[in-house]
Amino acid sequence: MHSSFRTPAWFYFSLAFGIAWVLWLFPMLASRGILPLGQVAQLACLFAGSFGPFIGAFVAVYRDGGWLAMREFAGRSLRYRMGPIYFLSAMLLTPLAAGLSMLWLASHGGPPFATGVSLSHFPLLYLELFLFGGSVNEEFGWCYAIDRLQQRHNLLRAAVVLGVIWGCWHIPLFFIVGLTQSFMPFWAFLIFTIALRVVIVWGYASNRKSILVALLFHTASNFAFNLFAVVDRSPQHDERGFIGFALIMLAVSLLVALTARCYRQAPTDSIATTDVDTSS
């Protein structure tokens, strides 16, 4: 099936950002005592806003090709056939990078190396993060976005641009008191989102645009933040753990960018076509 993009890219990004930023404005004001809003309502706004990319993608896909295009696009989340290297990378890369950073920190005056989740809780936590932790909310949108950006850029440049956009999409969260982002330096977070997006796009593009690969990478990233205390919420506010995590991911992304076949191939016009996956 051939499907050209009829929806302007700005329309998708306006929805992805607009839905998130408008809804996140309420908890941002509430956390600073400007707006009277209960904790449950704040969490509801945070959760609903995180679906901006998801909603934007499906609205744009419908405008591009109707229900058939939406069905094909959603079906890419079921493309489970992937090479072992991609599956292992999606599941283990970010937790290992976070663990390395915390090992280094423990040997340089930081807290003793420890995990914050018991082994028996791994499966349930992973499932919760997969379904409700941001992966589904975001990755359908960012996969649509990388397809759009590749119309004007080669794949690596598109991945870097999307990494910047992804990082900036989170900006309101940095102003919500007590939220994880409020304890991070934004410059390091931007390095992290660019690096992780380069790695996610590598998995996505190398496996027939499998949205499932992107979902697994995103979930493992969130899992790493729960497994290790890379973000220090204590009064000491030691940022070295997260900065180390971001720099390790940057090194990994550079290795991927220099060696991955998908980043060395000449761009083609295949980005404007959508393959029907009869196997899923």
Rank of each mutant, 00 (worst) to 15 (best):
46 L>P: 00
46 L>S: 07
46 L>E: 07
46 L>T: 11
46 L>R: 04
47 F>P: 00
47 F>R: 08
47 F>A: 12
47 F>N: 08
47 F>K: 07
48 A>H: 09
48 A>D: 09
48 A>V: 13
48 A>L: 15
48 A>G: 09
49 G>V: 02
49 G>C: 01
50 S>C: 01
50 S>D: 05
50 S>M: 09
51 F>Y: 15
52 G>N: 06
52 G>S: 11
52 G>T: 11
53 P>S: 09
53 P>D: 11
53 P>I: 12
53 P>V: 13
54 F>W: 04
54 F>A: 02
54 F>D: 01
54 F>I: 03
54 F>S: 02
54 F>E: 01
54 F>Y: 10
54 F>M: 04
55 I>K: 06
55 I>R: 05
55 I>L: 13
55 I>H: 03
55 I>M: 12
56 G>T: 05
56 G>F: 01
56 G>R: 01
57 A>L: 05
57 A>D: 07
58 F>T: 05
59 V>Y: 04
59 V>P: 00
60 A>H: 00
60 A>D: 00
60 A>E: 01
61 V>D: 03
61 V>M: 00
61 V>S: 04
61 V>K: 04
62 Y>Q: 08
62 Y>K: 10
62 Y>E: 07
63 R>T: 08
63 R>I: 07
64 D>C: 09
64 D>M: 07
64 D>H: 08
64 D>W: 06
65 G>D: 01
65 G>T: 03
65 G>R: 01
66 G>I: 07
66 G>Q: 10
66 G>A: 10
67 W>D: 12
67 W>R: 13
67 W>N: 12
67 W>M: 10
67 W>L: 11
67 W>T: 14
68 L>Q: 15
68 L>I: 15
68 L>A: 15
69 A>C: 00
69 A>V: 09
70 M>T: 12
70 M>G: 07
70 M>R: 10
71 R>P: 02
71 R>M: 03
71 R>T: 11
71 R>Q: 11
71 R>S: 10
71 R>E: 10
71 R>A: 11
72 E>W: 09
72 E>G: 15
72 E>H: 14
73 F>N: 08
73 F>Q: 13
73 F>A: 09
73 F>P: 02
73 F>K: 09
73 F>H: 14
74 A>Y: 05
74 A>W: 05
74 A>C: 04
74 A>I: 11
75 G>H: 08
75 G>A: 12
75 G>C: 08
75 G>Q: 07
76 R>K: 14
76 R>G: 15
76 R>C: 09
76 R>A: 11
76 R>T: 15
77 S>Q: 05
78 L>T: 15
79 R>E: 14
79 R>F: 06
79 R>P: 02
79 R>A: 13
79 R>H: 11
80 Y>K: 06
80 Y>C: 10
80 Y>L: 12
81 R>C: 06
81 R>H: 13
81 R>M: 10
81 R>W: 09
81 R>G: 10
81 R>E: 14
82 M>D: 08
82 M>I: 14
82 M>E: 13
82 M>N: 13
83 G>N: 04
83 G>M: 01
83 G>L: 01
83 G>S: 08
84 P>Y: 05
84 P>S: 09
84 P>M: 04
84 P>Q: 06
85 I>M: 02
85 I>H: 03
85 I>L: 03
85 I>C: 00
85 I>D: 06
85 I>N: 03
86 Y>V: 15
86 Y>R: 14
86 Y>I: 15
86 Y>L: 14
87 F>N: 08
87 F>R: 11
87 F>E: 10
88 L>Y: 07
88 L>E: 05
88 L>N: 08
